[in-house]
Design a binder for these strands. Sequence first.
RNA 1: GCGGACGUGGCGAAAUGGUAGACGCAGCAGACUUAAAAUCUGCUUCCCGCCAGGGAGUGCGGGUUCGAGUCCCGCCGUCCGCACCA
Length: 857
Amino acid sequence: MPRYNFRETETKWQRVWRERRLFDVAAEAGRPKYYMLEMFPYPSGKLHVGHVRNYTMGDLVARYRRAQGFNVLHPMGWDAFGLPAENAAIAEKVHPAVWTRQNIATMRAQLERMGFAYDWSREIAACDPEYYRHEQKMFLDFLAAGLAYRRESWVNWDPVESTVLANEQVVDGRGWRSGAIVEKRLLAQWALRITAFTEELLEAIGGLDRWPERVRLMQENWIGRSEGARVLFEIAGRDEPIEIFTTRQDTLYGASFLALSPNHPLAQHLAEGDPGLAAFIAECNRLGTSEAAIETAEKRGYATGLEAVHPFDAKRRVPVWVANFVLMEYGTGAIFGCPAHDQRDLEFARKYGLPVIPVVLPPGADPARFVIGDEAYVEDGTAFNSGFLDGLPVADAKRAAGERLKALGRGERTIAYRLRDWGVSRQRYWGCPIPVIHCPDCGIVPVPEGELPVTLPMDVSFDVPGNPLDHHPTWKHVDCPRCHGPARRETDTLDTFFDSSWYFLRFCSPHAAVAFTREAASYWMPVDQYIGGVEHAVLHLLYSRFFTRALKQCGYLDFDEPFAGLFTQGMVCHQTYRSETGEWLFPEEVEPAPAGGFVDRDARPVIVGRTEKMSKSKKNVVGLDAIVDTYGADTARLYLLSDSPPERDLEWTETGIEGIWRYVNRLWRLASEPAVALPPPGTTVSGGLSPSLAALRRTIHQSIAAVTDDLDRFRFNRAVARIRELSNAIEELPEASLREDPGGGAVLREGLETVARLLGPMMPHLAEEMWLTLGGVGLLAEQPWPVADPDLARDEQVTIAVQVNGKLRGTLEFPPDAPQSEVESAALDLPQVARWLGGRPPRKVIVVPNRVVSIVA
RNA sequence: GCGGACGUGGCGAAAUGGUAGACGCAGCAGACUUAAAAUCUGCUUCCCGCCAGGGAGUGCGGGUUCGAGUCCCGCCGUCCGCACCA
């Protein structure tokens, strides 16, 4: 049995596509465009099959839209700055630039072998000075516009990576990469004013109707809008009031303390004269903020001795504490405590013996008898013990309290957000240098635009910990561009998320002297379909939305949203294996044991772990090269599309890939050894077909319609199933009916050509080879997408279910849209139906056209 | 704690409120073969039955409906995101 020679075929078609520059595109005013983009990868080494699932989906969409006549931009590039390159430099004594370039070469070759339809002429790498020079210019524009600024602030410090992390990069109190417990440090840092767009970023989420609901919710939660009030508390004996934020200004009469964050400026100031407070603060900053630490850490406080004046009642005084549970990063870093109506405040008050004053009365409760026990009352009710607020429901009391605060000049209603400005300084080498100079006389001076790019020095050493740019003997020593005195270059580099916040714009005009041309961006943008992992729901995707707005403000472009459509694909999983001693094993180090289970190469038993996302650390990866060597790119591509819905996780199995490989060979035989001789291409099918041939034609056109619909809706697994149904129908057609019917060959040709066309976006090499074998004209990749003929797709007979009391008792065959009365009487005449009716007339009969007859006995 | 998604055969999964399990994987039986592989044919939700047929069935309990995997209410479970957020 001849096997399909994927090796020869795949290289052949890849060469043809490349030589004809088939997927290189140019903007064509007036022609509809389609921008298909997959999140560009970090060049970490070699690809495994898990990496290419989203590229396979993206390629499917790109080729499909191309066949539909769109001018498709489908570029690829490299998110090439980042820490792994520096780690490799330390471990393997190879320069990060060299390591990165090698990985890019390897991975590009791997992507090329997959036959992806990229416009490689637009390839970019973020570590290329011709790329990052433009982001240095952007940084300077942001600086001029006040969107980039330097601040001294408490930052997340990753002690393992010796660098600062953005809030978004701290996961569960730990560095997102290193896993080290993050510490708080006060540092001077560059930040981007993402909070200038908070409300806009939040509101516009509503318009992202082709984004997954999940991602939109995650962004909403991340921005974290909450309505409340800021309140100023005068402090006895001090000029400066304390400003707090609350969502419960209606409960101000229940205040029994104020609490400051340990990092609040006032707390810091007081600590200078209070060694006990200083020790308390130091203790708080040592404690982690991980889930476990938070759950076990008790509420602890330190009384400062200060007293605050109640804003509504000057006679009332409340003590000011410093408390470990108050976050400097949220609100104003200070709260007022109302123990009766906040669980956390209650715990604190009970511990330190502070008063608990109920001020919200549950509906129907007796004010004289209502007391707070172990649980704060947080539900709705009416204000009491609250002076002018008494009798008001919570919502009205919030409004009235807000108005009174404003009238008194002691605060107003306001909105607090969880979103913080984006700290972009990183104390690393392998990133984009921040183009500023620190001058002892002039302060911060931007590098003149004519001197961009500020390039990284190549002669660096990674022998000592810390930032190699800072250690470099000469790099940072420069003259001030303004006063020409001795000055120092900024040695921090930009967070790599800066690089990925605009790469989709660079792809529009990758060789332009500017970051991107306005014309190219206005033609290609926004990205019509973006595909990537959900792990970037609030990192990259939020930063890019911010960047687009910031660039708009700086005059680069004139739209707000970069990604019109977003799809987040599921992961590729594989079983994990461990040796008896607990070391992870690669799948190829493991084989099935004759007695069941698995053994390693030395026949020692292997422990089979759970199925998890493919990751290098657990070794449950299947190398892409090995799969393409054994089965070819098309087989791998179809497998990644066929088994699970694209948004769900997919389990990679050896039997699964073999099943696809068998199907590939069946398809190949079907096209290369047709059951009857095919008429020349373009032969029209004449009428008067036998029933089985007419049925096949119907299946062909129904398949075209169904596959088209499935691809539009990202239901790739279903599309694959529909194509298999069509190819099964062709295989199952009796040879006799093909031979005897004069139209047989033409219908067979139509069927095979349709299979090839529908497969084109999924298995482009095999489809191209089938097309050639069938004698098709030109390249399949240049054929238009097939269009279903509704007349030919129409069913000749419909099967109508007959139910008695909701149970299926038989079926009827009718032409579509048969008269209801006929269908009804045929149903009642069925012997099974008569039996269930037991001779009595039905109480009710419901006829749903072409579907069901429901009889109530 | 808050927010969200999901729960269907041995497995991956299909199913505009209208014949549950399409399409595949695995398995079983058979054909071809000296044999194996490959290929082909058939079976494959569970229970009763020789068949005909019947019964049960989409996490659990209710409800709406002629009819519910699908809609509504209440549970249980799994996964994901956020979380001392004032």
